[in-house]
């Protein structure tokens, strides 16, 4: 029932926003597979807290674009049960912070059912939720929680950074037979870029190399990809050339692409919005340190992360809590200069 993947060509793309790209993926998945349905708070008439599902109620009706009460645990549990019974639910949680309300169903149920049952049943569902700071929403509406989910065997974790990836990775997530945590970023919803018009699926577990340079590798996720690319432009003006890699899915992780870039450039800067301690990029640091790529390094691995603080409200505090473009430029310059 799934649509066939077609070859992508330049003429097959159109420019649209990250939010529109997600909406298009949802609509195309629902058109081609009647098992796919949406449930979440205010996703119907309201169109979702960030407008992502605008217009889908009119197209697909209230049974398949199902508004729910404010019951995150119930909603995710209902998705788990529906998935077990043969459906392909896509849940929207308004802010990724609210997944804390649903953690039992995500961590103890969705993630483990396939394994606990010895493979006898699977839970093909997607949980979409926006994370990240930069909107003045403070500590309970701004977190970057990807490491929580990556730590749980059985979950896949996707962090799309561009409109094209948002669409292609979401289509792949909906097709996947496993529970997939799909973490969007609030600041990216209005960003735009070329997006394939057809339902072209990306691969979960394949990194994207956005830019090639010989002096250092920057590995960045989510909104930090765009910031790292801007930083790379500034660095290039100074004669420092960065490779910028976006893992796109942190579980599964495309270790090969990251390690190849590290071996080639000899320097590694890891950039994430989430707090430093226990953050996912530390896993990448450990990966590099634990294999022969370590011997390619000419400088210590550097992590540029959010501070270990709750995200504050005041804009000047909020900005200072997570890496900004000048921070990335400075960290990259120091990394190259000190070695």
């Amino acid at each position: 029932m799934a649509s066939t993947t077609i070859e992508r060509t330049a003429s097959d793309t159109r420019t649209c926003s990250y939010a529109e790209a997600i909406r298009e993926a949802l609509a195309q998945a629902m058109e081609s597979d009647e098992r796919v349905f949406l449930l979440g708070e205010d996703i119907g008439v309201y169109g979702g807290a960030f407008g992502v599902t605008t217009g889908l109620l009119e197209r697909f009706g209230a049974e398949r674009v199902r508004d729910t009460p404010i019951s995150e645990l119930g909603i995710v549990g209902a998705a788990v049960g529906a998935a077990l019974a043969g459906m392909r639910p896509v849940v929207e949680i308004q802010f990724s912070d609210f997944t804390a309300q649903a953690m039992d169903q995500i961590v103890n149920q969705a993630a483990k059912i396939h394994y606990m049952l010895g493979g006898a049943a699977s839970v093909p569902m997607v949980l979409r939720a926006p994370g990240g700071s930069g909107t003045g929403a403070a500590a309970q509406h701004s977190q970057s929680l990807e490491a929580w989910f990556a730590h749980v065997p059985g979950l896949k974790v996707v962090l799309p950074a561009t409109p094209a990836d948002a669409k292609g990775l979401l289509l792949a997530a909906i097709d996947d037979p496993n529970p997939v945590i799909f973490l969007e970023h609030k600041l990216l919803y209005k960003s735009s870029g070329p997006v394939p018009t057809e339902p072209v699926r990306e691969t979960l577990g394949a990194a994207r190399v956005h830019r090639d340079g010989d002096d250092l590798t920057i590995v960045a996720t989510s909104v930090m990809v765009e910031r790292s690319l801007q930083a790379a432009d500034e660095l290039a003006a100074d004669g420092i050339h960065a490779t910028v890699v976006d893992p796109r899915t942190i579980k599964p992780l495309d270790a090969a692409t990251i390690l190849a870039a590290v071996r080639r450039t000899g320097r590694l800067l890891l950039v994430q919005e989430a707090p430093l301690t226990g953050g996912f990029v530390s896993e990448i640091a450990a990966l590099v340190a634990g294999c022969d790529a370590l011997y390619s390094l000419v400088a210590p691995i550097r992590r540029l992360c959010g501070l270990d603080v709750p995200i504050p409200y005041a804009p000047q505090l909020e900005r200072a809590a997570v890496p900004q473009v000048p921070d990335i430029v400075k960290a990259a310059r120091e990394l190259v200069m000190e070695s």
Binding site: L84, M87, P89
Partner: peptide, 10 residues
């Protein structure tokens, strides 16, 4: 319990 409800929804 929520899983049963989801199976009912299915």
């Amino acid at each position: 319990i929520p899983i049963a409800v989801g199976a009912g929804l299915a």
